[in-house]
């Protein structure tokens, strides 16, 4: 069995607020110095899902990442965690793609890989939070897609998936091959040791350019109209009272007044 996991390198969503800068002219986030990019957390969940499949069955896990100037030390973490192969789709034309274009590049790469019984992605990337790419890959490849998985199992050639819904989860069964997008409920990526990191260096890492895929990404389907940091205004009002109870009552009144309650 061969499993492909799409992992995306993004700016650290947990960077200090002061570090978050926008180039409003180019409508881009300025990568901050001193804050390393991370693998999008949902993609780490997706990788973990794949590795769990590998733990159970004799699957080969291929991690796939796309962009320009990708960080090898970061992405090789996938190999350290247990992926068998890392393929970097790295090209200047792969920078700043929208979800649909990304999906078509990733799908092209998956086609080039040849066999993909399961394709995992995160439910959404933690930078733009669109949640489109996984589904769009399925569309491109003509595969069924199950989103927001919290548990995945392969059972007699079928996928059994627990899928998160608003008030619990549902169980879905899907044939192979299929595309599954993974939620954080599935659990975090396993711990990686220094030894894992050094053994990851010996695993295969390939770099494919646009030419290797015989394609160029399609034009964007989304237009970014504006990018800005919302202004946050805070007004602080201290509500006092003689006793805690009185203060609480006053606070409740005040909140009701503002329409919060």
């Amino acid at each position: 069995m061969q499993v492909v996991v799409c992992i995306k390198q993004i700016l650290d969503p947990e960077m200090p607020r002061s570090a978050f800068k926008i180039d409003s002219e180019k409508k881009r986030v300025v990568p901050p110095q001193g804050i390393p990019p991370v693998i999008s957390p949902f993609d780490e969940n997706a990788l973990e899902a794949a590795l769990r499949i590998k733990d159970e069955h004799k699957a080969k896990v291929i991690a796939l990442s796309m962009g320009n100037r990708l960080s090898r030390p970061l992405l090789t973490k996938a190999l350290a965690a247990g992926a068998d192969e890392l393929i970097l789709l790295e090209d200047t034309v792969f920078e700043y793609l929208d979800s649909f274009a990304s999906a078509s590049v990733l799908a092209a790469a998956i086609r080039k890989i040849g066999v993909a019984d399961i394709v995992f992605t995160g439910r959404q990337a933690a930078d733009w939070d669109s949640g489109i790419t996984g589904c769009a890959i399925a569309e491109e490849l003509g595969l069924p897609c199950v989103t927001i998985a919290r548990k995945v199992e392969v059972n007699r050639g079928q996928m059994r998936i627990e899928r998160v819904i608003a008030d619990g989860f549902e169980i879905v069964q899907a044939p192979l091959p299929c595309v599954i997008t993974v939620d954080s409920d599935l659990g975090g990526l396993r711990h990686v040791t220094l030894q894992d990191l050094s053994s990851a260096r010996k695993k295969p890492l390939q770099v494919w350019k646009a030419g290797d895929l015989n394609m160029s990404p399609p034009p964007p389907r989304c237009e970014l109209l504006d990018l800005y940091v919302p202004k946050r205004e805070t007004v602080c009002e201290v509500i006092n009272g003689k006793t805690p109870e009185e203060a609480a009552a006053r606070l409740a009144d005040r909140l009701r007044e503002e329409g919060f309650l």
């Binding site: 110095q33 390393p36 030390p73 970061l74 220094l194 050094s198």
Partner: peptide, 21 residues
């Protein structure tokens, strides 16, 4: 220091350092 921060920003880190962080 700044060269290091620059590299960190690009995601070029030593794995050992990532462990400390």
């Amino acid at each position: 220091y700044s060269t290091r921060a620059h590299l960190v920003g690009m995601g070029y880190l030593l794995p050992e350092h990532s462990m400390i962080i």
